[in-house]
Design a protein around this nucleic acid. Structure first.
Lengths: 205, 205
DNA sequence: ACGCATTTTGACCAATCGGTCAAAGAGGAG
DNA sequence: CTCCTCTTTGACCGATTGGTCAAAATGCGT
């Protein structure tokens, strides 16, 4: 009955996935404190005690989601290649981050909720995982700029601006659509064109 | 005992201000659903029934804050002068928005929480107040670009990018400080220099 | 079909939620 | 001081919160 994948049964794997998906819906829409276990259970079509059979507590579900997310979230940044073409590496990073906003808006909002509310669960991970990675990639970018392959600009704030601009289209989706009006079905093509223009003009020698 | 200012007593004015300030602390840190009336009352040094003597409900406090905020929030955009120097008008808007992130981070987070969670209270105001103003100013900017006084770029997304980049330093303050490290006491001077460079390179002919 | 581990459930718990109410307290105009 | 309005409070309400528990139901290998 046990399974090779981390000592989990087939049912456990599917139910945990179902619960995670439902919890992502609820947490990303209401934040941790604004979400209830009943609501997650309802979204997962499970009774509350049944849900708490798979996760020991509401906080455990939340932590599970955040730790799983952190890796996915940093992946595009890790892929920046010091040996690649500087401008193209940055623009590819922008494209990847914007694609994540388009394809994983719930994850983006879960992350945003956590940070806005002071990162009570993730602040340790920010120092331990995020800071070193950003420092490393910022050094790569700074090196490119010193070699005259990119126009100079503060590398850390460059990375901040990429995060900010791309995640905006997921986190503030309601506002973007309200301003653009209903005739704009999909803001992302326009957004990508604008952002690529922006970073080309900022960085291109 | 009554006062000329909208039929409010002196005590009412000061207590309502105290409650609003406390509620801004709580709502901006936890979102509407994640906040409790008890917590706001505690932050305002009032008993819960006393607080509910000045506001009929938790929702009324929240609505009060949001409606008051909407005006303040749109003010810098309103100040863009069609007769002014195009680049300087945009850069001044950036400076004003960044100053608001520095001086009113709680208001920024209150707004961000509301939008991220689908704008359940503000979506009407977004269509009624925000969209027309943005369309008007976007037309001004488009006109500048057509006259060759700014480099061409999508005006709506230009405005989005200003919102996104400036509010990031309030809403994601924890992340910014975690990445920059404790030796950077105040990220805002660096941020302003970076953002002004960014928009100059994007728009300057 | 058996037997055992896994899964699901309804009933239940103390604590907290938003909000009410009657009564007590405070403060100023006459 | 007196009276009346405004302010404050403790006690309380039903509903909901996160979480528990024993018992029932359901797999699943043999």
């Amino acid at each position: 009955m046990k399974d090779s994948t981390g000592g989990q049964t087939r049912i456990q794997r599917t139910k945990i996935a179902t619960i995670s998906d439902a919890a992502l819906d609820v947490f990303s829409a209401n934040g941790f404190r604004g979400s209830t276990v009943d609501e997650i259970a309802r979204a997962a079509n499970l009774s509350k005690p049944n849900l708490l059979y798979y996760f020991p507590s509401k906080e455990a579900i939340h932590t599970h989601l955040l730790t799983a997310l952190m890796d996915t979230w940093l992946d595009p940044l890790r892929q920046i290649d010091p040996e690649g073409d500087p401008l193209e590496e940055v623009l590819t990073y922008v494209r990847r981050k914007l694609a994540m906003s388009r394809d994983m808006p719930r994850e983006s909002r879960l992350f945003a909720n956590e940070i806005i509310q002071g990162a009570p669960w993730m602040s340790a991970s920010l120092e331990r995982d995020l800071k070193p990675l950003v420092d490393e990639k910022a050094a790569v970018i700074a090196h490119w700029m010193q070699n005259g392959r990119l126009k100079p600009a503060d590398p850390h704030h460059l990375i901040f601006s990429i995060w900010s601009l791309t995640q905006h289209y997921a986190d503030f989706d309601v506002q973007v659509r309200a301003v653009l009006g209903p005739e704009v079905r999909d803001p992302f093509p326009e957004a990508e064109a604008y952002l690529l223009t922006l970073f080309r003009r900022l960085l291109r020698i």
